[in-house]
Structure formats: C-alpha cells, structure tokens
Design a binder for these strands. Structure first.
Lengths: 117, 117
DNA sequence: CAAACCTTGACACGATCGTGGTAGGGTTGG
DNA sequence: CCAACCCTACCACGATCGTGTCAAGGTTTG
C-alpha cells in the first residue's frame, strides 16, 4: 500500500501543500508520518481531502465550520448543549423537522442513560 | 405580555444593543417588531439571549459556530453531507460513539425515505 | 554529494468576525 | 414640542481565517 508525500497528495487532490498542512492543523485530515516525520497520505486521506473540497464548495462552508461540526460530533456535552439551545426556538410549525432531529438525539441519550443504570 | 425595547433588553441580558442587532443579523435571536419597526424582545427571546451567552462562554464558541449549527439543523442536505463526511473518518475504536451518532441520523433518513415510498 | 524533496516557523495580506462608535432621520412620551 | 429613545447605514479596529511565500535545516535519491 503506497502512500503519497505532501506534494504528490497536493497534485492529486487539488489542495496546495500549504493548505494540506493547514487542514491537518484544523484537525480534519491527519496523514500518517514516516519515521523521519514526512507526511504520508494514504488512499483514505486522499479520498477525504477530495470530498472535503467538494463539501466546502457545494455549501460554501469554511474549514472552521467543518472543524466545529467535528468538535460537536466528538464532544457529547457540546453537542447536547447546542442542540438544546437550538430546540428552544423550534416552536414554529415549519420547524417540526428540526425539532424531530433534536428529539431524536435526546431520545438516544435517554436510552443510553437508561441502559447504563 | 410586555416586551422590552433593545436598550432594556440589553440591560437585562448583558449584551450590548449593538450586539443584539448583530445576533439578530446572524439569524440567532429575532425579536418581534412594533408597527414602527422597533425591536420588541419578549420573555422567550430574553431567555434565549441569556442562554446563548452562557453557551458561547462555556464552550468558547463564536456566534458563527452556533449560526452554522442552526444552518445544519435547518438544512437536511447540509446536515447529511457533513455527517457523511465526518463518518468517513470514524474508523478508530474510540470513535464508536461518533459513528453511533452518525448512524442514527442515517437510519432516521432511511426510515423517512422508506415511509415516503 | 548534490539536487530535490520534506519539516517547522515566521511574515504578509485580504476577508470575515466581533465589537464599538457616529451620523442622519423617524417615534414616543412627558 | 422636545428630550430621549429607536431605526439603518456606515467607518474603524483588533482578532481570526484562508492562503501564499520564504528561511533554516533535515532526508531521500540518482
């Protein structure tokens, strides 16, 4: 399984080497490292880089937006706090879908808590 | 049911009048308007403003972070796209919880699609 | 060994965020 | 009516984001 260096990865993903380091620093795509510290991009990382580029372009997002989503995904406390705040405004009829989403999360946590008891 | 003007609301929430307008522009807390265009903050908005302040401080978030979360909550396409991208990295054992969260969302949408057919 | 790569760290620069102010004009209340 | 409020629309300014470039030094390879 061959891995690409940062310049090669840049060539096949459309990111610049500078941005690949920045994306890594943002915690979004972290390549393996060789024994001497060189970044080694495998197939999975390359795929993630390409789809990340699409994602940002399609919805006009910033890296910081996706980084925040990752933080929410990784930190249940943050996620629940944000969702609870958002839920406090989902009172209009057209917001049922949002309320649904939020309720789903709460249900899951209640189930987890119940199972842990 | 009395409503507060922007200066009064600023007084009881800890935000500045300037920031209340900014928060509204960010789409996070939109007060009602009087017939002449004055902002009228009701109890619900005041509560949301206070809890928003706590939320930002507790997790060191920016308004743009919460605005992005709101956008994800309101736009299923965006939500699914981001979650799918995040899921493509949740392969390590310690990420089961994230994978769980994501799978939950996918399941829900599959169910909705199935129900619509 | 020398060319061509890689590393981290820094400086730079436009764009946006968060926040305050100010100016010009309408509204409210004593 | 007039003082005190509200509105929108700007200008400003530091902090962060996104991005490029450059410097000083280690690694790989022909």
């Amino acid at each position: 399984m061959e891995a690409l260096t940062i310049n090669e990865a840049a060539g096949t993903t459309g990111w610049s080497p500078r941005m690949l380091r920045y994306v890594e620093q943002a915690g979004l795509v972290a390549p393996a490292r060789s024994s001497s510290g060189y970044r080694l991009y495998g197939a999975a990382q390359l795929q993630r880089l390409r789809t990340l580029k699409e994602l940002l372009a399609q919805f006009d997002l910033g890296l910081s937006d996706v980084a925040f989503a990752a933080r929410m995904a990784a930190d249940p406390q943050l996620r629940v706090a944000v969702q609870r705040w958002l839920a406090s405004q989902a009172y209009r009829p057209q917001d049922v879908e949002v309320a649904d989403w939020l309720r789903f999360e709460q249900d899951k946590h209640e189930k987890l808590l119940a199972a842990a008891a």
